[in-house]
Amino acid sequence: MHAHRFADAPFGPGFRRGRGRGAGGRGAEAPPPVERTEVAGWFAGRLSDDWFTGPVELTVDRDEITVVGTLPEPSAGDGDPAAARSGRIARFREETRGQRMAVADAAQERYGRSVAWGAVCGDTRELFTTLSVPVMTRLRQPERLVLDTLVDAGVARSRSEALAWAVRLVGQHADEWLTELRDAMASVEEVRARGPQVG
C-alpha cells in the first residue's frame, strides 16, 4: 500500500536530478526528473473542477508531490469564522478522500512520487499527512557542535531534530534567495528539455 493512502495528498519547482546515493540522491533508485508544466497540466486535467476556486499549488521534490487547493469560504453567520473555515476543510477532506486516493495512485504510477494533499480556506491552511523522509548526512565537528548546542539548550531533543530545526530556520530567513535559486534551476531544466535528444 502506498504511503499516500493514509495521507488524505504556484508550483514549487523543487524537482531536480538526483546526485549520488542515499536518501534524496539515490542514483538509479531516484525517480526521473519531471517537467513542471507537464505535472501541473496533468493535475489540472485530473482534479475535479468543483473542488477548488482556482489552480492548485504544487510542490514537487524527489519523493513527494504536495497538492494544495483553495476552497470557497463558508458563511459563518453568527458563528466563529475560523471554526467555519476549519470545518470546510474537514468536510472537503472527508468527502473527497476516495477520489483523491485514486488521483494519488495514478500520479504515483506516473511520476514515481507519493502524493500529499492540503487545503486553504481564507487564512486557514491545513496540510494533510505528508511524508517524513530520513536524510543521511555527514557533519564535521563544528557542524555537530551547532547541533549539540541546540540540544543542550533545549531547543531540540536530538541532533536529528536540531538539524530539521536549522533547515526550517534557513527556509524562513532565506526564502527569497531559495525562490530565486529554484527559479534558476527551473530555467536550466526547461532549456535542457528543449535540447537535442541523444540516444
Rank of each mutant, 00 (worst) to 15 (best):
L169C: 07
V198F: 11
L127I: 04
P134N: 13
V68E: 06
V39A: 10
R16L: 06
A40W: 03
T124R: 15
S158E: 09
A44K: 07
V115L: 12
E190M: 07
T37Q: 13
W177H: 11
G41H: 00
V103A: 05
R125W: 11
A162R: 08
G18V: 07
F6K: 12
A107G: 03
A193G: 13
L139T: 11
A107L: 04
Q108T: 09
R91H: 15
D183H: 15
V56Q: 07
E176L: 13
P72F: 05
H2T: 01
R100K: 12
M1V: 12
R194I: 02
T179G: 02
G79F: 01
R85P: 06
E29F: 05
G24Y: 09
M136P: 06
S132C: 07
Q141N: 12
A9L: 06
R182V: 08
A28E: 09
E189S: 14
R157N: 12
A90N: 10
T53A: 15
D61Y: 05
P31K: 05
R91Y: 06
T37D: 15
L163P: 02
L150A: 13
V68C: 07
S48Q: 14
R138N: 02
V56W: 04
T37I: 06
D49I: 04
D61I: 15
R110Y: 09
G25W: 00
H2Q: 03
H4W: 02
L169Q: 12
A90C: 01
E176A: 14
P33L: 04
